[in-house]
Design a protein around this nucleic acid. Sequence first.
DNA 1: TTGTATGCGTTATCAA
DNA 2: TTGATAACGCATACAA
Lengths: 363, 363
Amino acid sequence: MKFEPVTIKQMARDLNLGISTVSRALHDSHEISEATKKRVVDYARKVNYIPNPIALSLRAKRNRSIGIVISQFNNPFCSQVVNGMESAFYKAGYQVSIVQTSESTEKEMKAIQYLSSRVDGLLVSISSETKSTEHLKDLYEKGMPIVFYDRICRDIPTHMTLSDNYRGAYEATRHLIGQGCRKIAFVGGAATQPIVQERRAGYLSALEDAGITVEDKWIHFLPKGGVHYVETEVAMERLLRLPRDKRPDGLLTAWDKVTADAYKYLRRHNIRMPEELALIGFSNFPLTDYVSPSLSVVQQQSEKLGEVAAGQLLALLQSKRKPLKYQTEVLMPEIIIRESSLKLKSKTEEQRAVSKIKGAKKR
Amino acid sequence: MKFEPVTIKQMARDLNLGISTVSRALHDSHEISEATKKRVVDYARKVNYIPNPIALSLRAKRNRSIGIVISQFNNPFCSQVVNGMESAFYKAGYQVSIVQTSESTEKEMKAIQYLSSRVDGLLVSISSETKSTEHLKDLYEKGMPIVFYDRICRDIPTHMTLSDNYRGAYEATRHLIGQGCRKIAFVGGAATQPIVQERRAGYLSALEDAGITVEDKWIHFLPKGGVHYVETEVAMERLLRLPRDKRPDGLLTAWDKVTADAYKYLRRHNIRMPEELALIGFSNFPLTDYVSPSLSVVQQQSEKLGEVAAGQLLALLQSKRKPLKYQTEVLMPEIIIRESSLKLKSKTEEQRAVSKIKGAKKR
DNA sequence: TTGTATGCGTTATCAA
DNA sequence: TTGATAACGCATACAA
């Protein structure tokens, strides 16, 4: 099967008119008589003429559309971000075309090649597998407006929007410490992900600031970034099989899927939260407030993030030349404390625990 | 900012060669000397030449890409479906471009117009607002391969893949009856949605088969399809404010978001499930097994659905002409019984309850 | 007021 | 082995 749309040329033949006459009539040009105009418009409607966007793009070198490169659809955080972007571009009259990389560099490259020349600009979150960004760099140097969001790429000087991953992790860890945890583990996604590294950095700083020594065995990265349950399962088993005095009493998970899977693991193995292990994790999943125990999360401002990034791209699209200065917008994630990490009931108890640590540090 | 890519013409000038020579060299044609070939290929690599897909498409009338029209990204069911489609098309060497309609007919029409001529085929789930499908019909008549999934359109004869919504609702209702519920309410999405209508039909049949009379007040549709929490909230309030003897003891929700919101409502108002109200609903949300009480769901085979629909579109893409016969693939959703609807603990008790009803019917 | 010719980036046909 | 040219669908400068 092949799509054979009506073209202007065809209509011109049918109506015994010149091609340009038809074209101008459709554009409601003043230099066409009302009679012909009506004849053309009516006929176009009758045969359901749709201008070929491909031809339009080729000619105008303008597509009135932008592309979003996303890692995983099936990730609430990502879809929330896209929602924010979509509504911003819709208002601005742009069509949005989304492609998924599934964390594969090969797919990412294909996706970007596919979108290049099809769109006027790109919103990109680079895939976790990606090492080299030559393909993007080159595109950018040729003038393609690109804005990075969430998983940014420092090699390319352009606008970017991201969450404050460092502080999110820092505050979450501090909260666990405040709850009395002293052996706090960290399970991230892929070690190669800058995002995960930042989250680890925040985690480490919080522990250092509290004077707590970290064991290497408490820190786990997942080779495939935690796409599959087993990866998290293995990490959890390693943590929980540590000898009693090394066994963690708190856990920070630094990746949405990992958070969900760690939670599942703990529930499946009847490990009580927060008594046996206090859990807080990065997550934008829905329903985390209704699981039992309810799940403490570091929640990113996903829709906002999408909107801000969209605004940056729109700015690039409108400016004549590359801007001299680039903005980096940083959004603070929300720390939502729920049952899975709440060991101390009252605020004062928490305060006391925190001050104890401070004392400990000074010693 | 504007993207200015390197073209064949430009390279031909730079290398002092003819345009067609360059083109053929890049295609590794045998009629080009190895020397020239190398010169061209090296240069192309150096300047990072990317063939312009727009021009390619215009010429070839072939895009090697397909479009997916989706209602809401931010809906686990949808993203799971897209995942299934994506992997199938990736294997087949197609790029996939996804656009969201957000349930708006206007967006849907724009999206379809945008995709027409940009893609070789379309996977469409029509938006809940959409009444007329002329835009699609016409496109289809001109030869655009279209496959409907989930929210199908009966006016257009083509392949389609969907869940057995009727049976899903029927079995879910039967389960509630088996649990001893006799006043079973139904909260759907938009009344206009054929899917919701089918689910209601299944619900009604199950009640009828069990000899249970339905009250109109037990059935609620949501004007905007339940996008916002308040819609579900209002419906729930109406149900729960009914006089004691009319107040439902069971509830079937027929839309993923509505299920989540109904669950939230019940938790927020401390209404015990299943004792005060047994809940089962259509849902592909993650974590439904870890909420407390765990949530009984009618879960669609989302990824499978995507794969099957993708297969149908690939078949259309490969066939020379419109097929004489169209397939409609129907997938049975899975009924997962969990705490929110499980009043009777043992299987035998449930059996007894069911046989009681059967007896009642015969009377 | 209408028609013809050109170019957008490519490939394919034909000629050299 | 190479190069010029037409065509894909459209808009527009220019000619009539």
